Simulated scan of single mutants.
Amino acid sequence: MAPPDWSQLHRDILQHISKTLNSEFYQIRFRSVCSSWRSSIPKNHHHHFNLPLKFPIPSDDDSNSNSNSNFHLSKRNVFLITPPPNQKQTLHPWLIKIGPDSKQQTHLWHPLSRDKKLPFHFHDVIDFNQHRVIHLGTEFVFGDLPSSLYRNNIEKIVVFDADTWHIGKGKVSYSVLLTIHVSGKLAICRCGDERWTVIPGMATPYDDVCVFNGRPFAVDSNGQTVAVGLDLSLEFVAEPVFGGNKKFLVESNGELLLVDKYMISVQHEGFLDDHGDGVGNYEIGFGRKRAVKFDVFRLDSMRKKWVEVRNLKDRVLVLGEGCAFSVLALDLGMKNGNCVIYKDEAFRHVHVTGLGVRVFCLDKHRISPLVDVPHYNKLFWPPPEWLKLRW
Rank of each mutant, 00 (worst) to 15 (best):
V198T: 08
V159Y: 05
K185E: 10
V176L: 06
K185D: 15
S175L: 05
S183D: 14
T179W: 03
I180E: 06
F160E: 13
L149C: 02
E194I: 07
W196N: 01
V158W: 11
I188Q: 03
C189N: 08
L178W: 03
I188K: 02
G143F: 06
I154N: 02
V159A: 06
N152L: 10
C191V: 04
I180G: 08
E155W: 10
D161C: 09
P146W: 02
H166S: 15
G192T: 01
G168I: 14
D163I: 09
L178T: 00
L177R: 05
V176Y: 03
R195F: 00
W165Q: 13
K185I: 11
G184S: 12
S175H: 10
D144H: 05
L145V: 02
V141G: 04
K171G: 08
V198R: 01
R151S: 12
R151G: 03
R195P: 07
I167M: 12
E155R: 13
V176K: 05
V198M: 07
G143V: 06
T179G: 02
S183L: 15
F142A: 05
I167S: 14
K156H: 06
C189S: 03
P200H: 14
R195A: 03
K185R: 15
G184Q: 11
D161I: 07
K169Q: 15
K171N: 12
V182C: 13
N153D: 06
P146I: 05
V182N: 14
K171R: 15
L178S: 04
A187M: 11
H166V: 15
Y150S: 00
I188L: 08
A187G: 04
E194P: 05
Y150T: 02
T197Y: 04
W196Y: 00
V158F: 05
V141M: 09
I199Y: 06
L177S: 02
Y150N: 02
S148V: 14
D193N: 04
G168K: 13
N152K: 12
A162P: 07
R190N: 03
I157M: 02
K156L: 11
L186K: 06
L149M: 09
V158C: 05
G143L: 01
T197W: 00
L186I: 10
K169F: 15
P200K: 14
K169E: 15
I154E: 14
I188W: 00
C189E: 00
R190K: 08
V159P: 01
R151H: 10
T179F: 11
A162R: 11
T179R: 07
V158K: 05
G192I: 03
L177Y: 07
I199P: 10
Y174K: 02
